[in-house]
Nucleic acid binder design. Structure first.
Lengths: 114, 114
DNA sequence: CTCGTACTTATCTAATCAGTTAATTATCCA
DNA sequence: TGGATAATTAACTGATTAGATAAGTACGAG
């Protein structure tokens, strides 16, 4: 599977995105990451493996803890992918802007009540 | 399933992303979309259904053709989601920038050869 | 009113996935 | 050394998915 597909796949799960959101605040342990969820620890462990495999996090070791850290690179590649499409909604917005400007410049019907 | 998960799920496939890339150039028919792929037409039809369900495309009807059009809204929501994390890599970049500036301001060792 | 074109729906299969419990590994501390 | 704590691996289950083929629907042209 290609890298971008793996990344999107990893992001396609609310638990994993919540884990990322937590990790955006700073490095933390697996147990602490698991706390907010009604999911067994092995379940969380699996999610972390998916995130790690996608390059979204890295894991180190501190005694018996395995602190997780968010890894921006994979998210940056999503951002880069999106870049191709941003023109799309900017274009639409521009057209809307033009339309609104045109509307203001020469209104076909002067706004009367309502 | 929540909207964002559905969107990411839909994007987690290279065929579907290629279809989106094609649609970014403009509306087109299913057969034309299918042409570049070694996948049966029903297979493509399924992919389109996934994209449509994720709000990434819309489909209309023109005689026996079902032209597909890219729908920026869903991509915008990905962009919005990413926004929370952009600070992350900007922060890291800033730190790097600071480091580089500091390095340039007061170099601990004047660069001699190499 | 059939024929061809464009596409979808139905059904099946093999693979992957999210979740579970039970067992295992690794490290610290007394 | 022998717990206690932190986390992983193993093995299983039910659900979903990407792909296929075969059959069906919708429309226009002649």
């Amino acid at each position: 599977m290609d890298a971008l597909s793996t990344t999107f796949q990893a992001l396609a799960d609310p638990t994993r995105r919540a884990i990322l959101a937590r990790l955006a605040l700073g490095e933390t342990s697996v147990t602490e990451l698991a706390a907010p969820f009604a999911i067994s620890l092995p379940g969380i462990s699996k999610h972390l493996k998916v995130l790690e495999h996608a390059g979204l996090i890295t894991r180190s070791r501190d005694a018996q803890w395995r602190p997780c850290r968010i890894e921006p690179k994979a998210l940056m590649s999503v951002d880069t992918w999106l870049e191709e499409y941003r023109a799309l909604w900017n274009a639409r917005f521009d057209r809307l802007e033009d339309y609104l400007k045109a509307l203001q410049a020469r209104p076909k019907s002067r706004r009367r009540r309502k």
